[in-house]
């Protein structure tokens, strides 16, 4: 009786390992920022950071939705197309003279509806998320050109106001409305994942779907919910993008799903599901944004280095995840 062998932890080091990818991303971000500040005087300007958020607000929102999907072990390839479709639908409806609130409502309903349908097909017909969301990607992109083959400008006063509104401090640093919306989305998502049963079920399903089922968790509902959430986030992202560009263009945000997936993975979320944080995704998006900013500041580096660096980072982070996975076994 005196020897209780179940006290204490078996491998205390692993506790820190679960935060390792996140810490690595944070360190990377700080190093990149440090490099920027040391190399370019203008880089230390707070507005540089704000601009990263302004330029990537819509990406952040979409990446938050993708985080939900990836946490369950799924993937959503349709996000870029849904972003474009939402912007197109908004622009086209506004062009027809529909009132802005109605347009917002419709635009925000289409994405989740598509996500809901995809989630149902994935869950009930057991077809891989990759294929189903690929079809969703084709569908949404096709809808874009079906609506219009050319870009549609937006002149609606609500939209232009949202685009031009600067919220700033007295020294002239500012952010756009989109940034605030993006922050709100991040906060809601972080709360949902940490403090609601839905959020915890997302982690459970990503960790072990069979166990989740045996523990009586609502697997079907949760899985459909994450694709719906991703659709909703893509729709919000689409609205933000239309604020940013004040137009709807059929070929905008092509390939955006790759950036989004990269941001989520670099943010420490494991692609096989079950582990990761919205905060990590914020860091991942910032890493992408800062890389772009650095390359812009440099001026001699060409834009394609962005992709190569992102690919390289993806490799490093995936390898890191794999190594942690092996050690866990």
């Amino acid at each position: 009786m005196t020897t209780n062998i179940f006290t204490g932890r078996t491998w205390p080091r692993l506790l820190q390992q679960r935060h390792l990818p996140l810490l690595a991303t944070l360190a990377l971000l700080l190093v990149m920022y440090g490099v920027g500040v040391s190399q370019y005087r203008a880089f230390s300007n707070v507005q540089v950071i704000f601009n990263v958020f302004i330029d990537n607000g819509f990406l952040l929102v979409v990446a938050v939705g993708m985080t939900f999907v990836i946490l369950t072990g799924g993937i959503d390839l349709s996000v870029g197309s849904v972003v474009a479709m939402t912007a197109m639908v908004s622009a086209s409806l506004l062009q027809d003279g529909k009132p802005a609130p109605l347009v917002l409502l419709i635009a925000l309903l289409i994405g989740p509806a598509l996500g809901f349908v995809m989630g149902c097909v994935i869950h009930y017909f057991e077809i891989q998320p990759f294929i189903v969301t690929l079809a969703g990607m084709f569908f949404a992109r096709g809808m874009c050109t079906w609506i219009s083959e050319t870009s549609i400008p937006i002149t609606d006063p609500f939209w232009t106001a949202a685009a031009q509104e600067r919220i700033g401090d007295p020294r002239g640093n500012f952010v756009s409305v989109s940034v605030l919306i993006a922050f709100a989305v991040v906060a809601i998502a972080a709360y949902t994942l940490a403090y609601t049963p839905l959020g915890r079920n997302v982690y459970a399903i990503g960790g072990n779907p069979q166990s989740a089922l045996l523990m009586g968790l609502p697997v079907a509902r949760t899985r459909i919910a994450v694709y719906t959430i991703s659709g909703l986030c893509s729709a919000v992202g689409g609205i933000l993008l239309s604020f940013y560009t004040l137009s709807g263009a059929p070929l905008i945000a092509v390939g955006m799903e790759l950036d989004v997936i990269a941001a989520v993975v670099i943010g420490g979320t494991v692609l096989t599901g079950g582990s990761g944080y919205v905060f990590g995704t914020v860091l991942g998006v910032l890493v992408l944004g800062v890389i772009q900013t650095l390359i812009t500041f440099d001026g001699t580096l060409s834009s394609w280095w962005t992709k190569i660096v992102i690919g390289g980072l993806l490799f490093v982070f995936i390898l890191l995840q794999r190594l942690i996975g092996i050690r866990k076994k």
Binding site: Y203, A204, G206, N208, M215
Partner: peptide
């Protein structure tokens, strides 16, 4: 309680 622990190791 099953032979293979049916819980989620990531929680």
């Amino acid at each position: 309680v099953y032979q293979e622990v049916n819980l989620c190791a990531n929680l």
